[in-house]
Design a protein around this nucleic acid. Structure first.
Length: 857
RNA sequence: GCCGAAGUGGCGGAAUUGGCAUACGCGCACGACUCAAAAUCGUGUGAGCUUACGCUCGUGAGGGUUCAACUCCCUCCUUCGGCACCA
């Protein structure tokens, strides 16, 4: 078909030829004939050739240096990929291709994160089984990816829903359980009434479900929690090691972990008991005029009989339970609270008795769930005190004397007995010392990050490999068991027993109804055959855990599986892991900064502690992808009808044009609107390259062109490394423009240029390369990346900017090594200089070698 | 409220160890080719003034440092992202 089309063009031109205008027609025929490359037609041709020659197959181990480049793997949802999804994949492919040519053993894998709500909701909506839906979606996604011409080693493809894969997710979970890092809870947790499941703190945005925007409720449900907070300090400290991460992402993690240093102080309660409060402002403690406890605080139930207004208190607690998270944390809302009558708290620093309130602006899960209130120096306490007519006692003065309450900054202490006149900082140190000495307090660190609520009451996830055995529960609770009979996890969670390794994977059973039940149980709970089992310890009756793992489980370690995807004995061979880890470059969306990226770092640290991997951080360098918005500037989504399908683009313009355009749009991390005109520009550039290909035949190139070629080699190599793809392509365009102006150029220059173009436009580059080669197929990607010759890059002549009083007046060509005096002499003779200086006498001469001379008079 | 990133032509953007502002691309205008259109090629394209050579102004606003500021400092404004009753 391709040939037929060419022929037609040729005949049309012949007809014109007869009509006269000989020379014009000859040129026209030649140029059209040379340009007659159908760009989209190249895609299939080379993709199948590459696949046949297996040029992307990665060796497990090699003497070559390794380079592991990873994309955040997609979840194959119902809607196909749009051009925005491809952007990150194209970037990783560009880097992978350059690294291949630079002689690295490159690992560039792809797989599917297929468990979780998106896949399950799609399945429910379309009334097909999730497993079937996932299989369909994967094949659709894979086809889309293949059209674009990526270097994936498909032999390493993984799928988190494959039992051979999730066997190891379960196995690792079990390791964590045995290590005592997992506990069963029955606390109020985030619950989405629409998805009918519990959500992790990370899955809640503005009090709404991250997936469906339904208002999240708080509901007590039996749950599993991974004690990620035990790793909080290490997760925070090791951020400093991650020099290849973008600061913005690291900062997000810091915010999320939310470390704050302060003190925990014990207040005795009259008539009995005590509460602990957490404060970062111990220096203000003499200004404490009351205390507030969270509605969940145990003291309220403990001192029930001492509380004279118990009914009122219980009423308040009930009311606050009814509130959604959003209502409760609404900043604009007035702070409510009720005084707990009949009890008082005693400030250990001055033995003053103060009232105790219950108020839901104090959070049960943070710190100790109780605070000392210092209305003079805290905004919230100030508002609360004003409303309830409570004493406001000033204890911190601004150093300049002027202080408007509430004054929340550090200052100098007043009205604080022996601590008066100290600065806030000094006071905090001295006060902690005193508290420790007298035994009523200590230094404490708190984190905003909460433990990871890990189970979901849904069908489509990894089954949790635990069973419940009442017999073992009784034994553990009564202490009636042998040493080493139970693991730490089993002792911590009496009755919960881990399934033995030989029984893994616990396969997700096929069910007819996989819809969420909404009764706090997963659909698995209704399958008697699945639920009823034997206790692996005592062989008695036991029932299986029917909750499943959350979406994030499988993605916590997938990058390790690519290294050794077929291993039956272990999730990864430790020697292979040593060679390939850590991931050298990880590309994905910034929306994962506080979820996947934090979970995976935690998970990896646990594996390191268990001596199952070699390094304590999984990802050396991280680059976030900026969104591609719709042409209208809105987020690309079916809802707005602004989705651009890569398949259409590839069909019409070819994969190379899509790749070049997406890399050229702008800075890689920025969100930029799609513009089809820009795509046309990319295509024009590629056509220009085709026409340059036809210009070979020169014996030698001009010195200028050679120099420009070497500058281009230098710039492209650096820019790809630095993720500045847009300027790399701009440089390719600059070179192409220059080359096109030449009558003829050497074949060597064309081939070198093809190599530089290859990471971005692999199909066209291969076409150019192979056209000039004969014999056995060796891909351009098996050839060496060009090196810039430093001698050629050196300038012997430069443009010198001539400034008079700081304004540019002239640009002259001079010898690159011209001295200041020589330059001055030269410039002073010039008409332009004479004109501007006139009678003036130069007062100052600034000379920057190879750049400029500035004459100040 | 706190933290972070950013603000440059009609548009996407380039240039930050301070040294030609607007590279490259899109769009637009004019011209060539064409019966014509598209495609392609060529020229031009920040604003103002000027017959012209040129000159002045110009990187969100205002100030400052400097021979020289998109780049550094100060005070604001705006947009985006994250965190947020976290004591």
């Amino acid at each position: 078909m391709f040939l037929a089309w060419q022929e037609k063009v040729f005949h049309t031109q012949l007809f014109l030829f007869e009509k006269s205008r000989f020379f014009a027609s000859v040129i026209s025929i030649l140029s059209i004939y040379m340009k007659a490359i159908n760009l989209p037609g190249l895609d299939k041709k080379w993709q199948s050739k590459w696949a046949k020659a297996k040029i992307y197959q990665t060796k497990d181990l090699s003497d070559k240096p390794k380079f592991y480049v990873l994309d955040m793997f997609p979840y194959p949802s119902g809607s196909a990929m749009h051009v925005g999804h491809c952007k990150g994949y194209i970037a990783s492919d560009v880097v992978a291709r350059m690294k291949m040519m630079q002689g690295y053993n490159v690992l560039h894998p792809m797989g599917w994160d297929a468990f979780g709500l998106p896949a399950e909701n799609f399945a429910i909506k379309n009334k097909i089984h999730p497993a079937k839906a996932v299989a369909q979606n994967i094949s659709k996604f894979k086809k889309q990816l293949e059209l674009i011409g990526f270097t994936y080693d498909w032999a390493r493809e993984i799928n988190t829903t494959d039992p051979d894969y999730y066997k190891w997710t379960q196995w690792q979970f079990k390791k964590m359980f045995e290590a005592g890092l997992i506990r069963s809870i029955m606390d109020p947790v985030n619950y989405c009434p629409s998805c009918k499941t519990v959500l992790a703190n990370e899955d809640v945005e503005d009090g709404k479900c991250e997936r469906c925007s339904t208002l999240v409720q708080r509901k007590p449900i039996r749950e599993w929690e991974i004690l990620i907070t035990k790793y909080a300090q290490r997760l925070l400290n090791d951020l400093d090691k991650l020099v290849g991460w973008e600061d913005s992402i690291k900062e997000m993690q810091r915010n999320w972990i939310g470390k704050s240093e302060g003190a925990e102080i014990t207040f005795k309660i009259q008539p009995k008991g005590e509460i602990k409060i957490f404060t970062t402002r111990l220096d203000t403690i003499f200004g404490c005029t009351y205390c507030v406890v969270a509605p969940e605080h145990p003291i309220i139930q403990e001192l029930k009989e001492n509380i004279s207004n118990d009914q009122e208190i219980q009423g308040y607690i009930e009311a606050s339970k009814q509130k959604t998270d959003l209502e409760r944390t609404d900043l604009a809302k007035e702070k409510t609270g009720v005084e707990i009558k009949g009890i008082k708290a005693v400030n250990p620093f001055n033995n003053q008795e103060v009232s105790v309130f219950v108020g839901d602006y104090v959070l049960g899960h943070y710190g100790t769930g109780a605070i000392m209130a210092v209305p003079a120096h805290d905004q919230r306490d100030f508002e609360f005190a004003q409303k309830h007519n409570l004493e406001i006692k000033e204890v911190i003065k601004n150093s300049n004397g002027e202080t408007v309450l509430p004054f929340v900054l550090d200052g100098v202490l007043i009205n604080s007995q022996e601590f008066s006149n100290l600065t806030s900082e000094q006071a905090r140190t001295k006060m902690v010392e005193l508290a420790v000495k007298k035994g009523f307090g200590q230094k404490t660190i708190n984190y905003k990050m909460r433990d990871w609520v890990f189970a979901r009451q849904r069908y489509w996830g990894e089954p949790i490999p635990l069973v419940y055995c009442q017999h073992c529960a009784d034994a553990i609770k009564s202490g009636n068991y042998q040493k080493d009979q139970y693991s730490q996890g089993e002792i911590n969670n009496p009755g919960w027993i881990a399934v033995p390794d030989k029984d893994l994977p616990i396969k997700l059973p096929n069910v007819k109804s996989y819809q969420p039940s909404g009764d706090g149980q997963s659909p698995l709970a209704s399958i008697a055959k699945f639920v009823n089992t034997k206790c692996p310890k005592c062989k008695g009756k036991a029932i299986r855990e029917t909750n499943t793992m959350p979406q994030w489980a499988g993605s916590c370690w997938y990058y390790l599986r690519y290294i050794d995807p077929k291993n039956k004995k272990s999730f990864v061979d430790i020697n292979k892991e040593k060679y390939w880890s850590p991931v050298d470059l990880y590309i994905g969306g910034a929306e994962h900064a506080t979820r996947h990226l934090l979970y995976a770092r935690f998970w990896h640290k646990f594996l390191k502690d268990s001596q199952l991997v070699n390094y304590d951080e999984p990802f050396k360098r991280l680059q976030h992808v900026g969104l591609i918005l719709g042409q209208d500037g809105q987020k690309m989504s079916k809802r707005w009808g602004n989705v651009i399908d890569p398949d259409d683009v590839v069909k019409q313009y070819g994969a190379d044009a899509l790749r070049v355009y997406e890399m050229f749009m702008g800075p890689f991390g920025d969100s930029i609107a799609w513009n089809t005109q820009g795509l046309v520009g990319a295509k024009r550039f590629l056509e220009k390259v085709v026409s340059i290909k036809g210009k070979t035949g020169a014996v030698a190139d001009s010195k200028e062109l050679v120099k420009m070629l070497h500058q281009t080699i230098d710039k492209i190599s650096k820019d790809i490394q630095d993720f500045k793809f847009n300027t790399a392509i701009s440089q390719l365009m600059i070179f192409a423009n220059e080359a096109e102006k030449q009558e003829k150029i050497t074949e060597n220059t064309v081939l070198t240029f093809a190599k530089l173009l290859a990471p971005f436009a692999p199909h066209l580059a291969e076409e150019i390369w192979q056209e000039k080669r004969k014999g056995k197929f060796v891909s351009i990607f098996q050839e060496a990346w060009p090196k810039a010759d430093p001698d050629i890059l050196v300038d012997d002549e430069v443009d010198l900017i001539v400034q008079i009083n700081g304004k540019v007046r002239e640009i002259i060509k001079v010898d690159a090594n011209i001295s200041k005096d020589q330059a001055l002499e030269l410039v002073m003779q010039r008409e332009t200089t004479k004109k501007w200086i006139g009678e003036g006498k130069p007062r100052n001469i600034i000379f920057v070698p190879k750049k400029l001379i500035n004459i100040v008079f």
